[in-house]
Amino acid sequence: MSISERDFEALSAYLDGELSGKALARLEARLHSNQELQETYEQLQRTRSVIRSLPKIRAPRNYMLTPEMVGVVQKPHRAFPILRFASVLATLVLILVFMGDIFVLPTLTSISSEAVQFAAPAVAEQVQPILEAEIVESQLPEAPAEGEMDRAISEEEAAPPAAAEAMEMLEEAAAPVEKTQILSTLASPVEELADDLGRIAEPEEEPEEELLLEVETRIQESQFVPEERAGFDIETIVRYSEIALLIIALSTGLTAYYLYRRYR
């Protein structure tokens, strides 16, 4: 009795435990009664054991892939170019602001303070007699000498506006260079007027303390207020700008670097 291909197939499946139901029962019954079938089964069993004894070969190398091998150019995250540009831009602006802070701002500040320091006392000197004259005139109604009367009257009319203008100049002494020049040009007629009035008022020269106090106070106010306001504005804006730019440059740069590493 020879073994058919169907018998080999059944024996092979039986060997692997892949036979079930009636086919399994039928084969087991035949194995008990058929010696040749039994021997064939044992041979298949040994064959399988021999094949399974093949050693497992280790891979001779690692087969890990690189982006070049798979031909994939990995796209960076879409936010990466925006963040990179923002970081570079913020850094450049920060450098410019910082250089301005180092080289330009001190110059501006010194010019400003020098102008205030020099201009304010000069203007004050010029204005003080005018203010005094204004008050003296209002308090001394006696008629001046006749020869000087005409001149005094004509310049008296011009004096109050000139004095008021000088006061306005004092209050706006933040940009003092140009304004100081303007004041100095204004100062010459005012000075002349002050001299004239001084001469007129000379016989009755009785300085009043209240008047002088008021004049000094107004001069002091005109010296300090503009300086403080100008210094605070520029320097504070520059400092805040530097801090904001530094934060923007660092945060966008670090985020861009993270995205670059993550999606590389």
Partner: peptide, 10 residues
């Protein structure tokens, strides 16, 4: 295929 392969291997 497995049965025929094993038979030939044998």
């Amino acid at each position: 295929r497995l049965a025929r392969g094993r038979t030939r291997m044998r």
